[in-house]
């Protein structure tokens, strides 16, 4: 239900902007389509590989090891490990969410999964080096990261505490 609502919003917003683009002229309408096509050429292979890799990974990940290190019972230590892994995880959303989903399927706890994804959202090297540092400067990036540093641990700990 939640996903359905979000999906309708997504398609509705895309349709509305498409109409707005068409009113602005054919160049804008087709310029957007061409631009999106270029983005898709970048994303589609990553999506397909991410899904396939995650499927295989979930099957192969040793459940006992995942549960011991990242399971619910691994508690705060598990959150710390997960946040550390998330902070150094390379690549974009296809890779990170695919791996997180595979880990969850193999027995990782919710709080640990959240710590992993949150750490990636805030600290992804990819994002920091390719985008944040060039656009906002090295010092800005550093200060922003220092302020954000506690967040993945707090989110993971809160999840353990709230949803256990």
């Amino acid at each position: 239900m939640t996903l359905l609502i979000f999906t309708i919003i997504l398609f509705g917003a895309a349709g509305a902007l498409g109409i707005a683009a068409a009113r602005r002229g054919e160049a804008v309408l087709w310029g957007g389509v061409k631009d999106a096509w270029g983005q898709l050429a970048f994303t589609a292979p990553r999506l397909v590989l991410g899904v396939i890799g995650a499927g295989f990974l979930a099957e192969l990940l040793p459940a006992e090891v995942v549960r011991a290190l990242l399971g619910r019972d691994a508690g705060l230590l598990g959150v710390v490990i997960a946040a550390g892994l998330g902070a150094v995880a390379p690549g974009g959303p296809a890779l990170v969410f695919a791996v997180a989903g595979a880990a969850a399927a193999a027995g990782a706890g919710e709080g640990q999964v959240m710590a992993f994804t949150t750490a990636w959202m805030l600290f992804s090297f990819n994002k920091a080096l390719v985008w944040e540092q060039p656009f906002l400067g090295g010092r800005y990036t550093r200060d922003r990261m220092i302020f954000a540093a506690p967040a993945p641990f707090l989110v993971g700990a809160a999840a353990l505490w709230l949803f256990d």
Binding site: T7, L10, F11, A13, A14, L17, G18, A20, A21, R24, V28, L29, G31, G32, V33, D35, A36, Q39, L40, T43, A44, L47, V48, V51, I52, G55
Partner: peptide
């Protein structure tokens, strides 16, 4: 995996179009 890709594919397409038109508008 194929089923999952079929499920996500259209959403990715919509998200890409949405972002592209927004950048132009």
């Amino acid at each position: 995996d194929a089923l999952l890709i079929l499920k996500i594919g259209p959403k990715i397409l919509a998200a890409m179009l949405l972002a592209a038109w927004m950048r132009l508008l």
